[in-house]
Nucleic acid binder design. Sequence first.
DNA 1: GCCGTTTTCGGCCCGACTGTTTTCAGTCG
Length: 578
Amino acid sequence: MTVVRIGNEDIANALDEIANLLEIDNANPFRVRAYRNAARTVRGLGKNLETLVQQGRDLKSLPGIGRDLAANIEQMLDTGHMAALEELHKKFPASLEDLLRISGMGPKRVQALYHQLGIKSVPQLERAARSGRLCELPGFGSKLQQQILDAIAAQKVAEVRWPRAQAAMYAEQLVGYLKSIPGVSEVLVTGSYRRGKETVGDLDILVTAAKTDPVMQSIIAYQDVKQVLSAGSTRSSVILENGLQVDVRAVNQQSLGAALHYFTGSKAHNIQLRRLGQKRGLKINEYGVFKGKRHVAGNTEKQVFRSVGLPWIPPELREGGGAIDAARRRALPQLIERDDLKGDLHTHTQATDGQATIEEMVNAAQRHGLRYIAITDHSRHLTVAHGLDRKRLLRQIEHIDRINEAIKGITVLKGIEVDILEDGSLDLPDAVLARLDLVIGAVHSRFQLPRKKQTERILRAMDDRYFSMLAHPSGRLIGARQAYDVDMERLVRHAAERGCFLELNGQPQRLDLNDVYCRMAQEHGVLISINSDAHSVAGFGNLDHGIVQARRGWLSKKDVLNTRPVNALKRLLRQTRS
DNA sequence: GCCGTTTTCGGCCCGACTGTTTTCAGTCG
């Protein structure tokens, strides 16, 4: 029998679905909101609910979760179902949710369509719109009918989220364009991009200008605009030729801080902050902080936070995952910065699938301000990368020894990215691994192993006496490949006991560990190494992406292995072998 | 349905844009 695991996302989805159906059912709007709030809490938790319950934690202590919702959640953890949701499904077909997902369709319109035309699925809606029947309903006109048809067509194009690094290129061009508009002073990319999320759904751009109309006219005239979704005097939304949605909002200079805070979000964070304001008799919106009608703060973000008695919170932490609590207790972490990194422990050369020589990689590392670099080419099992066998690796080791004798200001460490084979053994014999400064183990095959086998495979690899670090621990490729099924918490606990390290791989499509597991590792005292996995001299830029992800994972300098000076690092690497 | 250093009852985050409307409901972020 297979055990169905109920994750936080499943529970949050069920709570959101209840909220949607309650709203269609004309329930008390605040009751609806309670379910949405709870869903948000669950999503932003950063800890597995199942684990919390097993540890005997009272769910009622979580914000927005009271007696009823705690019972609902526990019921779902126990049985896999939520009775409250199944009750609603007796009244409304589950397919109504599909209607809600169409842009422009909310609960009121879905309710009208269902009750008055019997429409309960997207194909039915499309047929009704094509035959012109929607116009018969009060509140529905011909424009709305066309808008619905357009939205259905747009939805058929798969919804994509954009890797942050990719969105960054488009953002840069747009920022340059907007800055060239006369009268514009500041142009800032806000939203999930500024919070450093690994993918973004759209770009939110904030512009300050004395007059906002010229900004709005310019954005809809931008050469790359394919479609204008809305165009007002202070806010416009457009879709670019590549399909990326861009929302531009213009305010005047004195609202900069409040608007920057507002549009950076997250939504959960904003709601929490506005509630704090409300308790102090303050109204917080994108124009500022107001006491009655008086503008009391808003020029800078810092002012907005100060108005509710908090220190400035870094954008990467504004996810509703306890940052406001930590700020209140004056316990925010001093987040790691790029300059804290002293070295890079995962790089490739043309000996395997890299593009540059060792010397070129070392020079590039120096240009990036690094004091040490580990050369970690692939091992023989990864034949597509022309992985190193024992003989070639020994030659590389000698080569690196010669480089170290000749070079100043940087240390080159001898390493390997060795394949973890299906049985958990490493792809090279211990006698060779013993000659290296560090051994990075990596899974590059058999991603489909069942959870238990995959977990035990990696645990066994960690137990090799020369194992130093686990590369890209979940194996995911953002938007391309799911993480393999593995008990990450067990890996983290084992790394703590075994005294080895976990990688945060900075490749934009990997960013692996993710933010949640970074926090988990930190809690267990496992040091993280932020590595570029550079395959060319340009690859060291990945360190910047890794830093952003680490900050989202609440990591400080002390939590990161490669912030250590080279001697301390070597000591730590030796300790993994004792 | 949740929550409380004003409250165990009576509140609950805030504003822009669109379409269908003669003053606003619905949706979105």
